[in-house]
Amino acid sequence: MIEDDELVRTTLSETLIGEDIEVAGLANAEDALILLAAGQVPDVLVTDIDLGPGLNGFDLAEIARARHPEVEVILISGTTPDPGRKALQRHERFLQKPFAPDDLAAAIRKAGPHDQVEP
């Protein structure tokens, strides 16, 4: 999970851990790219859209999917995504802040690989 607000990141991480969801909380996209390059690929990438200076959540999602097409993405933000941006991709979901931390846990479970059906 990539969230630049430390309080939000900590709160969401603690809730997810309490839901038996393994989580690594990071403050920026660049740290996430280091983990992805090292082969640490999550089943679900949760990222805030606005991450401050540097890459944003859309950029991170695009890079992550280019390297690992199977990665599911949940974008979170306190603002609605720019309507001029292309529609969310197949592997992207969106949660508008504020949301209940339990809602994020439910979205992760829904997006996770255990929810996929073999052809």
Rank of each mutant, 00 (worst) to 15 (best):
I34W: 15
N56I: 09
P119T: 03
D20S: 12
G78A: 05
K86V: 04
A37G: 13
V8P: 06
Q40M: 14
A29D: 08
G52P: 08
I74V: 04
G84E: 06
A107V: 06
V41K: 10
L16P: 12
E72Y: 00
D103Q: 13
V23P: 09
E30P: 15
A38S: 15
I2Q: 05
D115T: 13
R85P: 12
L55F: 10
D48V: 05
G18H: 14
I17R: 08
A61D: 04
E6Y: 10
E6A: 15
A107I: 06
H68K: 10
A66Q: 09
Q116I: 15
D103W: 12
L16R: 12
E118V: 13
E22D: 15
E70W: 15
L88D: 04
I108K: 01
D115L: 06
P42Y: 02
E19C: 12
L88C: 11
G39L: 02
T10N: 11
L12V: 09
G54S: 11
E30I: 10
G25C: 03
P81H: 01
P101M: 08
G25D: 04
A111P: 12
D59Y: 10
A61Q: 06
A107H: 07
D103E: 07
G57W: 09
E70N: 15
F94D: 04
N56F: 09
P53Y: 10
Q40C: 14
T79Q: 14
I21P: 08
A105T: 04
Q96E: 13
N28Q: 08
K97F: 07
E3Q: 06
V73I: 02
V23M: 05
T15H: 15
K110G: 13
R85T: 10
Q89D: 11
L88A: 10
R109F: 04
